[in-house]
Nucleic acid binder design. Structure first.
Lengths: 248, 248
DNA sequence: TCTTCTTTTGTTGTGTACAACATCACGCAG
DNA sequence: CTGCGTGATGTTGTACACAACAAAAGAAGA
């Protein structure tokens, strides 16, 4: 519940930082909304009103609709005539197919047009690993999700295959929310969070080590296992919780 | 050149068949435009005007823009302020990455949630094979492209993994045009067409045989080879043609 | 009190006028 | 004849008014 707490004032969007062409503006709004959805600033089932968004971003409904249309095509929202634009709900079982596909694509990133990481990229990985270590010290679900997101983008930059990157990103944003949503409903929320962060940190260390020696195939293998097991742990937790407690 | 000949009157779109909700209407327009682009009814570089499309489909610019936005997100067109909506140009080399990915996905279709083909589906495959045989008798580039498209959809229906299907479809429609476009520019156009149809027919027969015995993994392997070699043949033809003749 | 119909309110979908922008034609000076 | 500036023309991007639709609120009857 405290996951969706910081709703009162949302970051970004204001500040009149909207320089640049119309395309970039739309892209920016898109990125902001997508991030809000995936960090559960907008909860599943929540209703977004175009006019409110238009007011916040200081544009008319038209460009907002352009963004929402894309989000709808990507499965993150669904517009219903006369009702509103609803953030899609998700459940762990329905996402199994997406995870199966993500697992395969993760391995492909190490195979298709891999980019040899240079010193700068390695440094970025190490910085991220350091951030993850502070996370282990003071666990926080939202920061976990954010670091996970940054980590994904770093990993995604390890292939030069642009279509593969685009698709991996698409599937990533279709699935990340499920962790925050499911975990927040668990009885053993704190324990699960701590466990998950510990495991994530360990796997991240392994991957960074593999990146440092430039073995992207190994990165792919580790990540494949990472994604797959992460999904299984989450599903088991959810099912165990559902059978033990009421099914709300 | 004769490929883009039937432009005077385009099929579909009129007839006032626009029953159903607004979403379905948009979906229909989207499918029509996408098919036109991929069959080169709209040539690469051609300029589409929203108002003309709006008139043809008997709607305002608004839903047309909704469709064009999606086509732009998928890389088939690009809207330029003050100019028009341009059908994206493509070249064989830029598409190499997409083909690399398609090759991998083709194999996944036999692995991820394969659906055991029933009698009806097998019959559909055989019907398609029959159509392909008439194509061998009387080669025609456009019919080749259409049968190829139908064949793709049949193959795509062999997995129940919905995200995989969606993505395979996306990548398919990003790449199919290249064959028609490249082939039509070749000196040895007719010879290449005949060869390609023969090869396609043979591979299609192999795949249908594999479908009949229900071995979808084999289907994946055959198709992987099919896509990969088809790309290589096309690229070689294009490069040979470019070095021999002038580069236009 | 409950049910059902009507009204009211709110939201997205559509159509359209206008602004922003790019391109081409044309004139004109050099 | 060429190069450049300037206006005319055409197109997409935006904003807004209205239609279509859904849901909630309210009224009326049993």
């Amino acid at each position: 519940m405290t996951l969706v707490s910081t709703l009162g004032r949302l970051p970004a969007a204001d500040g009149a930082i909207q320089s640049g062409g119309s395309r970039e503006r739309i892209e920016r709004i898109y990125a902001v909304l997508r991030k809000r959805i995936c960090l559960l600033d907008y909860a599943p089932g929540e209703r977004l009103r175009e006019e409110a968004l238009a007011a916040e971003f200081d544009v008319s409904r038209t460009p907002i609709r352009r963004v929402l249309a894309r989000l709808e095509d990507e499965g993150l929202v669904r517009s219903v005539h006369g009702v509103g634009t609803i953030v899609t709900d998700i459940d762990i079982d329905a996402l199994e197919q997406v995870y199966q596909l993500r697992v395969e694509l993760a391995e492909l990133i190490g195979k298709l047009s891999p980019v040899r990481p240079d010193a700068q990229k390695i440094a970025a990985f190490q910085t991220l690993l350091a951030r993850c270590e502070t996370l282990v010290a003071t666990p926080d679900a939202r920061r976990f999700a954010e670091i996970n997101m940054d980590f994904f983008h770093m990993l995604n930059s390890l292939t030069a295959n642009e279509p593969l990157r685009a698709i991996s990103e698409l599937l990533y944003y279709q699935t990340t929310r499920i962790w925050l949503k499911t975990a927040s409903r668990l009885e053993s929320y704190q324990a699960v969070l701590n466990t998950e962060i510990t495991i994530f940190h360990r796997e991240m260390a392994d991957i960074v080590a593999a990146v440092e020696i430039g073995d992207l195939e190994v990165v792919g293998h580790i990540r494949r296992a990472h994604i797959s097991m992460s999904f299984l742990r989450l599903r088991d937790s959810a099912h165990a919780d559902a059978t033990r407690g009421g099914d709300d």
